[in-house]
Design a protein around this nucleic acid. Structure first.
Ligand SMILES: [Zn+2]
Length: 264
DNA sequence: CTGGGAACCTGAAAGC
DNA sequence: TGCTTTCAGGTTCCCA
């Protein structure tokens, strides 16, 4: 479900709602949701909240960290009333001031991992650059794609190339850059790669400004939808602004939306 | 190393 | 009206 702009919106919400709070317990409501080699004890205050790609990282004062991935349908909902629950609550992070975060996840793909602060996980180590950082530029992208003959759509979804893009934003980026999604990644002209880089940064910033995209499940920490779905140009659309029908194809098991007229 | 399909799971929507 | 199939903002494992 959530891609970089949605995760960033959640990070912003968590920073205003739970930064500094003391965790009293983490309740696993569905087995397999929480991986813990170590017990989180009391006196664990949340001292920093950040993300890498789509991974949410909460660091605690006793040198542990929680790594949370929401996958397709995960949500983190802040709740003032400890008696309240949600339809698909899989875990709860309870705070000493009688508030909590509910980890709600219909499809149960999402996970919470509790690790020592300095412990690394492979998926995080292998992440590509942050698309909104200076490191994401034409030189980096050209180098990353030089041996990739797979479609550019698939390459951009690869989290080891760029951290945080997903199915919606990749479709929107390729539309804005006027690149056909089936083009081999190593076969794209520099001018087009430059467009992909710049459009990626523009669209992600816009989407964050509008609190992310809600197609069905995504909600922020206050259980509210985003608004960027109102600005999408191809994802989930039937007709392009040029008048042509939007095409819908499968690439590596994922649906790709694009316009044959605008993207060549 | 690269790339694609299956698997993981639930529920809504579309198809018949 | 029901029953069946398809589809979904993601990642990981397995195999060519
Ligand atoms: Zn068009």
């Amino acid at each position: 479900m959530p891609e970089l702009p949605e995760v960033q919106t959640i990070i912003n919400g968590l920073n205003s709602k739970v930064l500094g709070k003391e965790i009293t317990k983490i309740i696993e409501l569905r087995p397999g949701t929480v991986y813990r080699q170590f017990p989180i004890t009391s006196l664990d205050n949340i001292i920093s909240i950040s993300r890498k790609g789509k991974y949410i990282i909460l660091q605690t004062s006793s040198n542990y960290k929680l790594i949370i991935h929401l996958r397709m349908t995960g949500k983190l909902i802040f709740e003032n009333d400890l008696t309240k629950t949600s339809n698909h609550a899989r875990a709860e992070i309870v705070f000493s001031d009688k508030t909590k975060l509910i980890f709600d996840d219909v499809r149960t793909f999402g996970k919470i991992q509790i690790l020592k602060f300095n412990e690394e996980v492979p998926a995080l180590i292998n992440l590509g650059v942050e698309p909104l950082s200076e490191e994401f530029n034409i030189i980096y992208l050209k180098n990353k794609l030089k041996n990739r003959k797979a479609p550019i759509k698939n390459a951009l979804l690869d989290q080891t190339v760029i951290a945080g893009l997903g199915n919606i934003y990749v479709a929107e980026i390729l539309f804005r850059a006027k690149v056909h999604p089936a083009t081999s990644a190593n076969n794209i002209k520099s001018t087009k790669l430059e467009r992909i880089v710049s459009e990626t940064k523009i669209i992600l910033r816009e989407a964050i400004k509008h609190n992310g995209t809600t197609i069905s499940d995504y909600r922020n920490v206050e259980d509210k939808t985003g608004e960027f779905q109102n600005f999408l140009k191809v994802y989930g659309k039937k007709i392009c602004k040029c008048g042509a029908m939007i095409q819908k194809i499968k690439q590596a098991g994922r649906t790709t939306y694009f316009c044959e007229e605008c993207q060549r």
